[in-house]
Amino acid sequence: MHYMVTDRSGANMIIEIAEGKLKIYPKAGNAVMTNDPSYESMLKIYDYYKEKDLARNMPGSPHSVDRFMRATGWLEQISPDKMDTIINLVPGKDFAMQVRMSVLSVMRTLSTPFAISTERNPENSTTLWRGISDLKNNIMMFDLAGSPSTVWVDLNKIDFSQGERALSLSDGGIKQGDVTRQFTPVQ
């Protein structure tokens, strides 16, 4: 099992529990993890592909090793700068949104197709949703595989002073874009 914890500075900790043992891997910047094999083994496989120019030789199966290599390879190629050629396609022409959409586009390339049959490969189950947490800007973004749109929530616009409470977006309609103001209290 792998779990990642990230703080606002961009520091990551990948936590691995395997064979009853806990291992922690600190990682700055972009961090990728998949379920299998161990993270240490995955890094060795990554080193092999890196020597072969991962940008030109990304493996393509749904296996976790291949997904790890594709995620890493694509993230290494994402521009760290505002791209004038595409910013007009980004909601609000916002650079932070460009970054979130870039990461989401990588996640989409790694996903198992919607409603795929698992008869031939039971471990290969459908990706139902993808999520992005922008800790710097307090934005949560969700992309549901069964919906034609992506939604996000601006946590800066939610009043948390009332304490814990349940809110819902489940009114049966398809949502898109910023849904922050569309939440309703759960009775």
Results as ranks from 00 to 15, higher is better:
Gln77Asn: 08
Trp74Glu: 04
Pro26Val: 12
Tyr3Leu: 09
Met101Gly: 00
Met42His: 01
Val5Ile: 13
Glu164Asp: 11
Tyr25Ser: 02
Asp94His: 13
Ser161Tyr: 04
Lys21Cys: 01
Lys52His: 09
Pro185Ser: 13
Gly177Phe: 07
Lys93Gln: 15
Lys82His: 02
Ile45Leu: 14
Ile86Asn: 01
Ile15Cys: 02
Ile116Trp: 00
Ala11Tyr: 11
Tyr39Trp: 07
Lys136Asp: 09
Pro80Tyr: 10
Met101Ala: 08
Ala115Tyr: 04
Gln176Lys: 11
Arg130Lys: 10
Ser9Arg: 12
Ile78Gln: 13
Lys50Thr: 03
Pro62Val: 08
Pro80Leu: 12
Met69Tyr: 05
Ala31Gly: 12
Trp74Ile: 09
Leu155Lys: 15
Asp7Trp: 10
His63Asn: 14
Phe183Leu: 13
Glu51Thr: 14
Ala11His: 13
Phe183Ala: 10
Val99Glu: 13
Thr34Cys: 11
Asn121Pro: 01
Leu155Asp: 04
Lys175Arg: 10
Thr184Arg: 15
Asp143Leu: 02
Asn156Tyr: 11
Pro80Glu: 09
Thr126Arg: 03
Lys175Phe: 03
Ser168Asn: 14
Asp178Phe: 05
Met101Thr: 02
Thr6Ser: 13
Met58Thr: 11
Gly173Arg: 14
Ser64Asn: 10
Ala71Arg: 07
Ser117Gln: 05
Tyr25Asn: 03
Arg70His: 06
Arg130Val: 01
His2Tyr: 00
Gln98Ala: 08
Met33Glu: 04
Ser133Gln: 10
Met140Tyr: 07
Asp154Pro: 07
Leu167Lys: 12
Met101Asn: 10
Ile45Glu: 02
His63Thr: 12
Asp81His: 14
Asn121Cys: 07
Pro59Gly: 08
Thr72Ile: 01
Asn88Leu: 09
Pro59His: 10
Val90Tyr: 07
Asn137Lys: 15
Val179Arg: 03
Met13Asp: 00
Glu16Arg: 04
Val106Gly: 01
Glu119Val: 08
Pro37Arg: 10
Ala71Thr: 05
Asn12Glu: 04
Gly163Thr: 09
Met42Lys: 11
Ile17Phe: 08
Ser111Gln: 06
Ile24Ser: 01
Asn35Pro: 04
Arg70Phe: 01
Ala115Arg: 10
